[in-house]
C-alpha cells in the first residue's frame, strides 16, 4: 500500500529521469547511477528480449561509433559469390553502413562502464565494446558515453567506446567474426556461489571455446575477481583449455591494461573500499594445432 506507492513514485522518477537523459541531444551532464540500478544477477539461460544480428556482417556498428562511419557504396563489393543462385533471393539483406575499423576489444559484462571509460583514451585508435546483459545498466553506460562525448568536443575522446545489451554466453559469435578480437576482459563476473549455479559462470571449459573463436592467436583474455574460489575456477578452466596459456606474472604486471582493470572498474573500487583482495589472471590465445 504505502510502500507500494513509494515504490511506484521511485520507478516513475527513474523513468522520467532516464527519458529526460535520452531526449536531450548533446547533454554533457553525466548520468546518475541511482536512477539506473538493477539487480546484480541475470539468468543467462532465459530468452530475454534481445536484439542481435543473425550474422556479424549484418551488425550495424554505425550508431555505436558514428565517427568511424565510412561513406561509400559498398553494395557491390560484398555481394555473395557469383555461383549463388537466382537473384530473387535475398541472401545478404540490407548491408549496414560500414565503419572504418572493427571492434577489437570487448569487455564482457561491462557493468557501469568504468573499464571502458578508462580504456578509451589509452587506446584511442582501437574500437572498444562493452557488453552487458542488464537493460538499465546498459542504458546508464550509453548515457555516460554520450555525455562524455559531448563534454570532450575538442579532444574527440570516447569516440571509440560503445556499449551493447547482449547475452554473450549465447550470442558472442553473432557480433564478432572468427579472430576479430585482440582483447577480452572479464572483470568481476557474477561469482555464482552456489554449486548448482556454477553452470551460469561466464568461464567454463565449453564456453572457453567461443572465447578462443572470437580471439585471434596472440589475443588475451583478462580476468579479475575478488573471490578466490572463482579465481581458481577461472584459472583451472582456462588452463584446461588447449587454446589458452597463462601469461607469466612478469608479463602480466607489465601490461598497462592490468593496472586499469584493478583500479578503474566499479567493482574494483568497491573492493578497494572493502579492503578486499583482487586476483588477476591473463591468458593468451594460442595458435590452433595442426589439423
Amino acid at each position: 500500500m504505502g510502500g507500494d506507492k513509494i515504490k511506484k513514485d521511485k520507478r516513475q522518477k527513474r523513468e522520467d529521469y532516464r527519458a529526460a537523459m535520452r531526449s536531450q541531444e548533446g547533454i554533457s551532464e553525466l548520468p546518475r547511477k541511482k536512477f539506473y540500478r538493477q539487480r546484480a544477477h541475470a539468468n543467462p539461460f532465459s530468452d530475454h528480449q534481445l536484439i542481435y544480428p543473425p550474422h556479424p556482417d549484418q551488425m550495424d556498428w554505425s550508431s555505436l561509433y558514428p565517427d568511424y562511419v565510412v561513406d561509400d557504396e559498398p553494395q557491390d563489393q560484398h555481394t555473395p559469390a557469383p555461383e549463388t543462385p537466382s537473384d530473387q533471393q535475398d541472401l545478404a539483406p540490407l548491408r549496414p553502413k560500414r565503419i572504418s575499423k572493427d571492434v577489437e576489444v570487448a569487455d564482457i559484462g561491462c557493468g557501469f562502464g568504468g573499464l571502458l571509460i578508462a580504456l578509451g583514451p589509452t587506446m584511442p585508435e582501437t574500437l572498444i565494446l562493452g557488453l552487458e546483459i542488464r537493460v538499465s545498466v546498459t542504458q546508464f553506460v550509453e548515457d555516460r558515453i554520450k555525455a562524455l562525448r559531448a563534454q570532450d568536443q575538442d579532444t574527440k575522446l570516447y569516440r571509440n567506446v560503445g556499449v551493447l545489451r547482449a547475452n554473450t554466453m549465447k550470442f558472442l559469435p553473432n557480433f564478432f567474426r572468427k579472430g576479430q578480437l585482440a582483447k577480452v576482459f572479464i572483470c568481476f563476473p557474477d561469482p555464482h556461489f552456489k554449486t548448482r549455479k556454477h553452470k551460469q559462470r561466464i568461464v567454463s571449459t565449453t564456453l572457453n571455446a567461443e572465447y578462443a573463436y572470437v580471439l585471434r592467436p596472440g589475443g588475451v583474455v583478462y580476468t579479475i575477481t575478488d573471490v578466490p574460489d572463482l579465481h581458481e575456477w577461472m584459472v583451472q578452466h582456462l588452463d584446461a583449455h588447449p587454446s589458452f596459456e597463462r601469461v607469466s606474472e612478469a608479463e602480466q604486471e607489465a601490461d598497462p591494461c592490468v593496472a586499469i582493470m584493478r583500479t578503474e572498474t566499479e567493482e574494483g573500487k568497491k573492493v578497494e573500499r572493502h579492503k578486499g583482495q583482487k586476483y588477476v589472471a591473463l591468458f593468451k590465445r594460442l595458435e590452433d594445432p595442426a589439423w
Binding site: 561469482p191 556461489f193 552456489k194 554449486t195 548448482r196 556454477h198 553452470k199 559462470r201 568461464v203 567454463s204 571449459t205 565449453t206 564456453l207 575478488d226 573471490v227 578466490p228 574460489d229 572463482l230 575456477w233 578452466h237 572493502h274 579492503k275 578486499g276 583482495q277
Partner: peptide, 30 residues
C-alpha cells in the same frame, strides 16, 4: 565440468571430487 548441475553426476569421466566441498566465498568477498 562447470555446467554439471548435480554433485552426484560428474560430467567428465571422473569420480565425485572433493572439490565440491570447498567454500565458494568468504566474508570478505560477500
Amino acid at each position: 565440468k562447470s555446467r554439471s548441475a548435480t554433485p552426484s553426476t560428474p560430467a567428465a569421466p571422473s569420480t565425485p571430487t572433493p572439490l565440491l566441498l570447498k567454500p565458494q566465498g568468504n566474508e570478505l568477498t560477500v
